[in-house]
C-alpha cells in the first residue's frame, strides 16, 4: 500500500517503527540524526497530525481487512527531496462482511440492485457538457467524471460501501429519460 504524499514526518513514525541498525561511528550517527531531522523539517505537518493520520489509515484499512499489527510498518524515505510514505500492512484475512452494511446474502441482492442501478447511471453521465440541460447531470457525477487520474481499483470497495437502498430508484426517477 504505497502512498505518495507531500512531505511527511519521519521522526514520529521512526520512533514507532524503529528500523535500521544502530549507528556506530559519529559519522553514521550524525548522518542518521540529520536524515530524521530533515524529514521533520521538510514537512509542514505537526507530529499530532501525523499520528492522527496513521491511526486513521489503520482504521480505514481495518474496516475491510484484518491487519497484522505486529508486522505493520510505516516508513518515510526521501527520494530527491520528495518524501514517500510507505505503509506496509500485512493482511491476515478479509473481513466476512463489512460492519454497518448488509450481511452476505443481502449483499448478493444488493449487488444485483446496484448493477441494475449502475447501467442507466453510467449512460446518464453526459459526454459533452455543452448542450446538456442543467438539470440533466446528476449532482454526484460532475461532467468530467471519472477524471483521468481516478484509481479505478478502489471502485469495488466504493460500490460495496454504498447502501443500495439509499440510491434513487432509476425506474421511478422522472429525470431518467434515457
Amino acid at each position: 500500500m504505497p502512498l505518495r504524499c507531500p512531505p511527511m514526518l519521519q521522526e514520529l513514525l521512526d520512533r514507532l517503527f524503529s528500523r535500521g541498525t544502530t549507528p556506530k561511528t559519529s559519522r553514521e550517527t550524525v548522518k542518521r540524526r540529520l536524515q530524521i531531522l530533515l524529514a521533520h523539517d521538510r514537512t509542514e505537518l505537526s507530529p499530532a497530525v501525523v499520528e492522527k493520520m496513521r491511526q486513521e489509515i489503520l482504521e480505514v484499512v481495518s474496516r475491510y481487512v484484518e491487519i497484522d499489527p505486529e508486522h505493520s510498518e510505516f516508513s518515510l524515505e526521501n527520494d530527491q527531496r520528495t518524501t514517500i510514505l510507505t505503509a506496509n500492512l500485512p493482511i491476515r484475512g478479509i473481513k466476512e462482511f463489512f460492519p454497518g452494511l448488509p450481511k452476505a446474502d443481502e449483499v448478493a441482492i444488493a449487488e444485483a440492485d446496484t448493477a441494475a442501478a449502475e447501467v442507466p447511471g453510467v449512460s446518464e453521465v453526459p459526454e459533452v457538457t455543452e448542450g446538456v440541460p442543467p438539470g440533466m447531470a446528476s449532482p454526484e457525477a460532475p461532467a468530467d467524471f471519472p477524471p483521468d487520474t481516478l484509481d479505478l481499483s478502489l471502485l469495488d470497495v466504493i460500490d460495496a460501501a454504498i447502501d443500495p437502498k439509499t440510491l434513487p430508484n432509476p425506474s421511478t426517477d422522472g429525470k431518467q429519460t434515457l
Binding site: S26, R27, E28, V30, K31, L38, Q80
Partner: peptide, 19 residues
C-alpha cells in the same frame, strides 16, 4: 577526519541535501 569516519563525507552531505 572523513577517512576516520569522524565527519560526514561529501557524498553523505550531497545525498542528504539532494541538490
Amino acid at each position: 577526519m572523513v577517512a576516520q569516519d569522524k565527519m560526514m563525507s561529501v557524498k553523505d552531505v550531497q545525498e542528504i541535501l539532494a541538490i
